Simulated scan of single mutants.
Amino acid sequence: MKDSPIQLDQQVAVPEVRRIGMDRPMVWLRSGWRDMRANPIASVAYGLLFAIAGDFILIFAWRTPYLFTAAVSGFFLIAPLLAGGLYEISRRQSEGQHSTFFDSLACWGRNGESMAMFGLLMAVATFMWERISSVFFALIIPDLAPDLWAFVPNVLLNREYRGLALTWFFIGATLALLVFSVSAVSIPMLIDRRVTAITAMITSLRAVALNIVPMLLWAALVVMLTLAGFATLLFGLIVFMPLLGHASWHAYRDLVK
C-alpha cells in the first residue's frame, strides 16, 4: 500500500512512500548479503575503512568516557554518509553491473551539494551530542578516573547517579531516533535522484512514520550489528558495515517509490 505524495510547492514534491511488513528488514539483510557476495573486494574495502575508523575511536577516546561515548554515537550518525559507496555498489548491482572500489566513488560526483548539506547537518548533530555528553560528565563525575572501566561501575551501575544517567540515555536515544528518522533513506535517495537534502529528509521521516514498527526493528538490527562489530575488536565491522550499507540501499528501494 502506498501513501499519497505531498506537494510542497511548485518545484518540490516529496516522493510516495510504501507501507512494508515486519519481514522486510530481514529481506534487506539477505539482499545486502547477495550484493556483498557479488562485489566482495569493493565491499570488504569499505568494511576495512569502517574498522580503521573504529580503531581511531578506541585509541583516542578509550580513556575519556564522554569522548568515547560521543565518538561511538557519532559513528552511528555519520555512518550513513560514509556508506555512500556501498549504496552505489548496490545501485550498480541492481543494473547488472559489478563494481570496483573506484567505481563506487562515482556516487560523490552526483548531487554533491545536497550530500554535503546532509553531511553538515549530521556533523552539527554529532557536535551537539558531544557537548551534551561533556556537560553531563562535568556535572556529575568531575573527579572520576578517566577511563571506561571506572565509568561503568562507578556511574552507570551506581544508584546515586541513576536519575542523571537515565536522563542522559533518554536525551541520547531521542537524538538518535530523530537522526535515524531523517537519515534512514536520505543518502541512498540523494545518490539515486536529483533531489535536495531537505526533500530526502522529509521523505525519510514520512517513510519511518508510516512504518514505525518495522523501522524500529531495522534500527535495532543496525545498532546490534554495529555494536557486535565493536565487541569483536572491530573485526566484525569488516563484514557487518558493508552488509548494513547494502541492506540500507534495499530499504530505500523498498520504502520509496
Score class of each variant (00 low, 15 high):
residue 255 L to S: 08
residue 202 I to H: 00
residue 237 L to Y: 01
residue 132 I to G: 00
residue 40 P to D: 10
residue 87 Y to T: 11
residue 168 W to L: 00
residue 221 L to K: 04
residue 153 P to D: 10
residue 92 R to N: 12
residue 18 R to P: 01
residue 238 I to S: 04
residue 100 T to H: 06
residue 156 L to K: 04
residue 112 G to D: 09
residue 189 M to W: 00
residue 97 Q to C: 01
residue 214 P to Y: 06
residue 111 N to W: 07
residue 60 F to W: 12
residue 113 E to L: 14
residue 44 V to D: 06
residue 83 A to F: 09
residue 55 D to A: 12
residue 223 V to T: 11
residue 187 I to V: 15
residue 174 T to V: 15
residue 12 V to I: 15
residue 88 E to H: 13
residue 205 L to K: 00
residue 220 A to C: 08
residue 17 V to Y: 01
residue 136 F to M: 08
residue 149 W to S: 13
residue 65 P to Q: 06
residue 124 V to P: 06
residue 30 R to I: 14
residue 77 L to N: 03
residue 29 L to W: 05
residue 78 I to A: 08
residue 13 A to M: 12
residue 74 G to K: 09
residue 105 L to S: 01
residue 224 M to S: 14
residue 147 D to A: 05
residue 88 E to Y: 12
residue 147 D to L: 02
residue 58 L to Y: 04
residue 159 R to S: 11
residue 116 A to Y: 04
residue 141 I to A: 15
residue 178 L to M: 12
residue 38 A to K: 07
residue 53 A to S: 12
residue 132 I to E: 03
residue 139 L to T: 15
residue 157 L to S: 12
residue 213 V to S: 10
residue 133 S to I: 09
residue 195 V to E: 13
residue 97 Q to H: 12
residue 85 G to N: 10
residue 145 A to K: 13
residue 69 T to A: 10
residue 212 I to M: 11
residue 164 L to A: 13
residue 111 N to P: 09
residue 151 F to V: 08
residue 162 R to A: 15
residue 85 G to M: 08
residue 146 P to W: 06
residue 217 L to C: 09
residue 166 L to G: 00
residue 62 W to Q: 08
residue 164 L to F: 12
residue 90 S to Y: 01
residue 39 N to H: 03
residue 93 Q to I: 01
